[in-house]
């Protein structure tokens, strides 16, 4: 899932204070799970903003609502008309949701209420850890299922640097050394010898470095495009 964390009220206030009618718009999937931007947090933020507006003597109406996901148009299409009643939408979705909604709200700005952090897992309640960097070329089979790209501070590919200290990364005692974990894991798996092979310099073009990415499934797209063409010629089934 995508993990995010709430922006501070000060930062949000600075964004919204010039508007009159603001909707805090939650997303009830990933960011809800990490208690950053689900309906509950949207209502919390809305309440805090109203209180702030009262403190500052500003007349700003702040409502909240939410939908299950901001990253598929079908989810927010039913509330699109409601959204248009506002002069600012503060989306507490991840950056994906903010972008996606922003492309569809015409003259109404969509601002972010959440900092999108990473792709992670819920290690334990309230503990979210980054486990994948979305590099587009997975090598987890080579590293005992532990990703050095996401989890090594230096994205090292050929073993630990000299900074490993008691199993922790040199950047912090609170960060596990990914390579320490990889070695321990591969020892258990009996595949430690695999690490002797030198991994050549990576081709980062599948990652963000290759520019904005898109996954296109030809078999689905071809059908959809054909359907669209058919309905258009038939007088607009849509």
């Amino acid at each position: 899932m995508i993990v995010g964390s709430q922006k501070s009220i000060d930062e949000i206030w600075d964004m919204i204070k010039g508007f009159k009618k603001v909707l805090v718009f939650g997303c009830n999937t990933c960011v809800a799970i990490c208690h950053a931007g689900g309906e509950k947090e949207a209502e919390t933020i809305a309440t805090l903003l109203r209180m702030r507006a009262a403190q500052e003597g500003k007349d700003i109406a702040v409502d909240f609502s939410s939908v299950m996901r901001h990253c598929e148009p079908e989810y927010f299409e039913p509330v699109m008309e409601d959204l248009k009643k506002y002069d600012l939408i503060l989306s507490t979705a991840c950056g994906v949701g903010v972008n996606f909604l922003s492309d569809r709200t015409g003259t109404i700005p969509v601002y972010p209420g959440v900092n999108t952090s990473f792709y992670g897992a819920v290690e334990s309640p309230g503990n979210f850890v980054e486990l994948c960097a979305g590099c587009g070329n997975c090598i987890l089979h080579l590293t005992g299922g532990i990703c050095p790209i996401a989890r090594c501070s230096k994205t090292l590919m050929n073993g630990p640097c000299g900074g490993t200290n008691k199993g922790k990364c040199e950047i912090s005692k609170d960060v596990d050394c990914a390579w320490y974990l990889i070695v321990e894991r591969m020892k258990k798996l009996g595949t430690l010898e695999k690490l002797a092979e030198i991994q050549p310099a990576r081709n980062w073009s599948t990652s963000r470095d290759g520019g904005p990415r898109r996954v296109s499934l030809e078999h689905i797209r071809a059908y959809e495009e054909k359907e669209a063409a058919n309905t258009d010629s038939a007088g607009g089934k849509k």
Binding site: N158, G162, N165, L192, A196
Partner: peptide, 23 residues
């Protein structure tokens, strides 16, 4: 190249050197 012979995890350090030498 640098090498941390007594670094953690210590079991991997000889292999670490091997890789650098091989490289």
């Amino acid at each position: 190249a640098s090498w941390t012979p007594m670094g953690d995890p210590i079991d991997i350090r000889p292999m670490n050197l091997l890789k650098k030498v091989n490289a």
